[in-house]
Simulated assay, not measured.
Amino acid sequence: MSAHRIATPEALDAWLAECGHFVDGHLAAVGRVPSGRVAARFEHYLRHGPLPGDRLVVAVRELAAAAPTACTEPVPLYPAHFLEEVEGGATAGGLFVETWAPGTFRLEAPAFQVRELSTVERRTAPSVQDDRFTAVLATERDDGFWVDAVGALLGAPVVWRALGGGARPAGLDPDGCFLQLAADLDTTSGGVWHARHVGRARSFHRSSAGADLWWAVRTVVSGVRDLTEVRTGNCTFRPADWLGYLATGVLPPAGRLRPVAY
């Protein structure tokens, strides 16, 4: 599409509003040419789905300055970063746009040229958080189960502890507590945070826990016979797929990483 010129704060605000201020969009690229022209390529979602394999429709738009008076850009650029929003307004010498990408991107110029480059379709990629997960069990396990099972796997005493505290008896903390090796209590403040949720969901979050402890917690959970699913990032794993992922680091097809109800 042909470009059109934006020379007033009102016109800039109208264009940003049309693009939803690129909330949860992306700063995909920043390009410079020898003449001094700077062009930023933004993406915003016309259709968005959070689950692996969801259909996405993305509008790709360019905002360019033929004669920029100032330009600050993050190095390196992270095109997959989700923007909070893009702001714009007036400066003493014209207009500006600014966002956190992460790192500040700010472009100032007497005027901008904007155009829509394309509309593309994609699929939501699986995203796993390797420092946390939630397990759903068909049968409740008491707090003693976790310290006993993790400790037996490691061959070392494992205890419950509050943040920065010493060992505590199991069951004292209704919302959750940290699992930690007894030998590491004096050199750490946390461990693996273990939180209860409605039903039989249990969350585990690695916080100042060593690799061996985190491995043992994930292994114990994966071996629970009545494990029904594991949730992490935007993925929901069936038990066999979770075991496979822990063993190989390879994700199953996106269709098997969606909640069973979908």
Rank of each mutant, 00 (worst) to 15 (best):
G176K: 06
G155F: 01
T134P: 00
W215D: 15
T124N: 01
A182R: 14
R106P: 06
S222H: 03
A109S: 12
L153F: 01
R200G: 15
A209D: 07
T236P: 03
G199M: 03
A240Q: 13
D173T: 01
F145A: 03
H194D: 04
C235A: 13
E121I: 05
D142L: 06
A111W: 07
F105K: 01
L185R: 06
P157V: 09
V159G: 08
S222L: 03
L153C: 01
A209I: 00
V114M: 10
G233K: 05
R225N: 06
A182Y: 06
T228R: 12
V150Y: 12
G233F: 13
T188W: 10
S207F: 09
A211C: 00
G165T: 06
S207M: 11
N234P: 00
C235L: 09
S127Y: 05
Q113K: 00
V114Q: 03
A195L: 06
V159D: 14
L181P: 00
W214S: 11
L213G: 06
L117S: 07
G223Y: 02
T232E: 10
D148E: 12
V136L: 13
C177M: 07
A209H: 03
P239I: 01
Q113L: 11
F237I: 10
A135P: 05
R218Q: 15
E140C: 03
L137M: 13
P169M: 08
G223D: 15
A152H: 06
R106I: 05
A138Y: 11
V136S: 13
S207Q: 15
E121V: 11
T188R: 12
W146I: 04
D131I: 00
V192T: 08
T236S: 07
E121G: 14
R225H: 10
R122T: 00
S118Y: 04
D184F: 07
P239R: 08
V230P: 03
